[in-house]
Design a protein around this nucleic acid. Structure first.
Lengths: 264, 264
DNA sequence: CGGTTCATTGAGATATCTCAATGGTCGTGG
DNA sequence: CCACGACCATTGAGATATCTCAATGAACCG
């Protein structure tokens, strides 16, 4: 499996060979988590720095009435806890959506890593700020766009973020979420997400079958979603995807596809 | 005027005398900005680190259709740009809501400040992470709570944040926003905010007159808004407000009040 | 005093929700 | 290989929250 953390950080700066092997070394310690389990629970104290190396996870808060709100989607290469030792307790939980491979980097190793490799430190800084920017954009998206555009916006965002780590194939990508997950992320209902998806399909903007999304007309989708990629702060500078991360082809049969993603 | 940056950072750790005077020194360079002007515009490159020393500002994005969404409210003591030199361009604008006093700290002074005063560095870290947590909570609030609760939640948040810097008086505070500003922050319409305010008034939870908010029953308001202060990561450890920041009394006449706040 | 800005109110339009029923797909066990 | 159950997506129809537009009212300002 390619190292998606490296792929991601290289979106910010090209890293040297020593940088890359240091990152490889530091992500060797891994942990598998099943789908639909918590990685970190609300109220928990801080632990090591965790990185999602494969699979999808999310930050979420469970509301009193049983509904939940996902406040961020964590894709391969994303960091779980930027909140170093500073905050006492997690104010939200992190849970998996698919089976996830996690790297756990002890704080002291992280410190020496950043000390020895300033470019990595800067790239981690960038990742934090980009994540904050995404969070702001979610606020805007949820607050101001109606269902269809809101959903389209998320699908565009995921496309660009996945492309940055080499997890797209043309205008396709594996989308291992069910509609209720999308609803939790968008502040909508599962039922309504279903209808919004229909609307996007009816306009020939997307096709979604068996957890595989095809964007049929990216410019048109971005237009209807009023999506601009600037807030992602991605460079696509060194398109790592060819070299370091090979995307899977679109599925031939449903069964094959589902098996391959995202456990791979 | 008390230094609200110091008041705020002391919510995280008590600072030593040298720390405090270093902060005083570094915030001496000030700038006044009129109400309803931009401090930083979208697309602008990074500048010095800016701190709101007095008055209210907000992060916002202007949408194509003329509406705008406020993604964060910046109160006295809050930082404008955490995005150090890392990101190329602002993905949102920062504008004032009232007249604002700004401190502008050049990057190199910031670096030496943090180098010489590690506690300040840690406190700035904390401020960043707390801001990110607030941003997540806004996502949840806007996505999942209906108008009345959503508005109540914001009013509770502002109460706690203002109290942390000593800008409350009992259960009152100056709220220099018009209803359309609240609407922009909440993802609602001005009209609807008006109705939600009526609802809160009708339940005897708040009183709001001439930019002064009185919370008549904080526990009840927090209950109906399902507000929990944990995500603010405030300690109230060293209640600086008595020592370093004197809140203004509630207004006697409308005219007096409006003059005093927040220009002071 | 008249103008400007903001808040309030009313009434019809729309987006989204809720609840309940139906249908599809996949895995499992006989 | 089929039948069943589990899980998820789809559809329909009525309920509700919020929006839009327009009119009125209140406060303040010069």
């Amino acid at each position: 499996m390619p190292n998606f953390l490296i792929a991601k950080l290289q979106q910010f700066t090209p890293l040297s060979d020593p940088d890359r092997s240091a990152l490889h070394a530091v992500t060797e310690q891994r942990r598998q988590v099943e789908a639909r389990e918590d990685i970190v629970q609300e109220g928990e104290a801080h632990g090591p720095m965790r990185v999602v190396l494969d699979g999808w996870a999310c930050r979420y808060r469970q509301l009193e009435d049983g509904r939940r709100q996902v406040s961020a989607l964590l894709l391969p290469g994303d960091l779980c806890d930027t909140h170093v030792n500073v905050l006492r307790a997690m104010d939200h939980a992190i849970g998996t959506l698919t089976p996830v491979t996690l790297a756990e980097i002890p704080r002291d190793r992280l410190d020496t890593l950043v000390g020895d490799h300033p470019d990595i430190g800067r790239a981690l800084w960038w990742e934090m700020l980009a994540a904050a920017s995404i969070q702001r954009e979610w606020t805007v998206n949820i607050a101001r766009r109606e269902g269809v555009a809101r959903l389209g916006h998320l699908l565009c965002e995921l496309f660009h973020r996945l492309r940055a780590v080499g997890l797209t194939h043309d205008h396709d990508y594996g989308l291992p979420l069910r509609q209720s997950d999308l609803a939790d992320a968008l502040g909508l209902t599962g039922v309504h997400v279903s209808r919004c998806l229909q609307a996007l399909r009816a306009r020939d903007l997307i096709a979604l079958r068996s957890r595989w999304l095809t964007i049929l007309d990216l410019p048109a989708l971005q237009r209807t979603a009023r999506f601009g990629p600037g807030y992602l702060h991605l460079g696509y500078r060194d398109p790592v995807r060819a070299a370091d991360a090979i995307p899977s082809p679109p599925p031939e049969t449903v069964r094959d596809e589902v098996r391959r993603h995202p456990a791979r």
